[in-house]
């Protein structure tokens, strides 16, 4: 994420936050980080799957009846493949 300069007033205000507010912020930032991670995975999956599934001439804005299921399967198989890697690594570790 881009670096954002914080308003010095805000920084000053941060020092006087209550314990509860700090806790709230912590939880919020953690959740936002997770969201950003998921979104970035969606971006890279869309990139990969678009390349694989949208191969014919682009002549409509909507996904056609081949493209839509292809995109879904692409995500599913990617997850499967990912699982294969994890399983294999686990197996290697236990050997």
């Amino acid at each position: 994420m881009d670096q954002a300069a914080l308003d010095p007033q805000v920084v000053e205000g941060l020092k006087n936050l209550s314990a509860k507010d700090k806790q709230d912020l912590n939880t919020f930032i953690q959740a936002e980080g997770q969201k950003a991670q998921i979104q970035s995975t969606i971006h890279s999956l869309t990139d990969t799957c678009f390349r694989k599934c949208i191969t014919s001439k682009i002549s409509a804005g909507k996904l056609d009846r081949y493209e839509e299921p292809c995109m879904q399967s692409c995500v599913d198989r990617f997850m499967d493949a990912n699982m294969v890697v994890i399983k294999h690594l686990e197996q290697m570790r236990s050997q």
Binding site: T41, I42, L45, T46, C49, I54, G61, M71
Partner: peptide, 11 residues
């Protein structure tokens, strides 16, 4: 549209 489909599926 692809982004939305992937998003739904992945989530």
């Amino acid at each position: 549209a692809s982004w939305n489909t992937v998003s739904r599926q992945y989530l």
